[in-house]
Simulated assay, not measured.
Amino acid sequence: MLTKNELPACPVATMVELIGNKWKLLIIRNLLASTSRFGELRKDIPGISQKVLTDNLRALESDGLVTRTVYAEVPPKVEYSLSELGNTLRPLFKEMEAWGNSYKDYISNQKLPDIN
């Protein structure tokens, strides 16, 4: 977790520091939908390696956005979910989803140039 002195002065830069890579965004997207186990996250995020998923989950947990719950079972069961703080990102992700859909509509409605 970054200390107060390590955080950028700009609030947008702070957010980018915390969730600004594509893997963290996709992990949070999935955890907004439901609590997940490691294997489920790995299966649902194409292209992510085990190491990258582990590193990003640890960072999100360290930053207080993700909660890791270990159940005393054999074999051990571990689940990841958004913390209370992580859940405050929900409106932001809804807005990003709406913007992404609007952009897709915009691109779909663009006319291709007439080459002939």
Rank of each mutant, 00 (worst) to 15 (best):
F38C: 08
Q50W: 11
K111E: 11
P11A: 07
T54E: 05
V12C: 03
T14V: 02
G64V: 12
E17T: 15
L85Q: 11
R90P: 12
I48Y: 07
I27E: 01
P75V: 12
G86H: 12
S36H: 08
L89T: 07
R58C: 05
L57D: 00
E73M: 11
G47F: 02
Q110W: 06
G47S: 04
Y103S: 10
S83Q: 00
M15N: 03
V52N: 02
E17L: 08
I115A: 08
K77N: 10
K22S: 15
S102K: 06
E6S: 02
K94M: 08
G39K: 10
S108N: 13
T3A: 07
S34L: 05
S34D: 14
N101W: 01
A13N: 11
K4W: 03
C10W: 10
T35D: 10
P11H: 14
M1Q: 02
Q50D: 07
I19Q: 05
K24W: 01
E40H: 07
K51M: 05
G64C: 06
Y103N: 07
L31C: 02
E79S: 07
L57P: 01
I19D: 04
V74A: 11
S34P: 05
V70S: 11
I27Q: 05
E73I: 13
N87K: 15
K51T: 12
E97K: 13
N101S: 09
E95V: 01
V66C: 02
K111N: 15
P75Q: 14
N116F: 10
S81K: 13
S81N: 03
R58L: 07
P46I: 03
V70A: 04
A33T: 11
D44Q: 12
L92M: 09
A13T: 10
E73C: 06
